[in-house]
């Protein structure tokens, strides 16, 4: 049950986009149509689920001082966490890109251009940094959290892309066209998502 409530909570209550604004740059840039939004969303879920548990293990066994640390209880390396996390993410996206290109060319042609973008997507690094704050008990919890936040991000980008497709037929004031009205749309979607805020799981 704990896994289930963590899962639901990370999708709706702690939604990466509407509660923390993570991954906004690519969220706004790649949400012009549903198809590409779908591809990027999938890629984000995939990379999050793979890197977050990896960073969890690094954090638990190398960075945090204590009985689990392989360098002994007195070595505090936590100041290195930013550089280690981003290195894992960058290396992983590079690796995934090469593997997918070699073995799954069909998937590569649909995801390909988004994979390198993901290394600098705040949602991925943000997930790892939140993981560090949340103190998960084991790898399973961190993986469930990764899947949940990835799905939340996916849901948000596909929803926005669908709205923007419809929005292109409406008569928006000239200075608001494009990015301005998108911001306001995301704000209104955020207000709708706040309905989940009061739920405590």
């Amino acid at each position: 049950m704990e896994y289930l409530s963590l899962f639901v909570k990370s999708i709706f209550v702690d939604n990466m986009i509407f509660a923390y604004f993570l991954g906004m740059c690519s969220y706004l840039a790649v949400s012009k149509n549903v198809k590409t939004a779908n591809g990027l969303g999938m890629a984000v879920i995939f990379v999050l689920v793979c890197t977050l548990p990896l960073n969890y293990l690094l954090n638990k066994y190398i960075l945090t001082p204590g009985e689990n640390c392989i360098f002994g209880p007195n070595v505090d390396l936590s100041f290195l966490s930013f550089i280690l996390f981003i290195a894992v993410i960058a290396a992983f996206t590079q690796l995934v890109e090469m593997i997918v290109e070699k073995f799954l060319p069909a998937l590569y042609s649909s995801l390909g251009i988004f994979l390198p973008l993901i290394a600098v997507n705040c949602a991925i690094l943000g997930g790892s940094l939140f993981m560090q704050q949340k103190d998960f008990a084991n790898v399973g919890e961190s993986a469930v959290y990764a899947l949940g936040s990835g799905l939340g991000w996916y849901l948000a980008i596909v929803a926005l892309a669908a709205i923007r497709e419809k929005l292109s037929y409406s008569n928006v004031p000239a200075p608001l066209k494009g990015i301005g009205i998108t911001f306001i749309t995301v704000g209104l979607m955020g207000i709708a998502f706040m309905a989940f805020m009061g739920i405590s799981l």
Partner: peptide, 19 residues
Amino acid sequence: ILPPMALILLGCVIWVQRS
């Protein structure tokens, strides 16, 4: 104070600048 308002305000800032 809530997060969505930041987005709407930023939308308004863009509105003013582009006008």
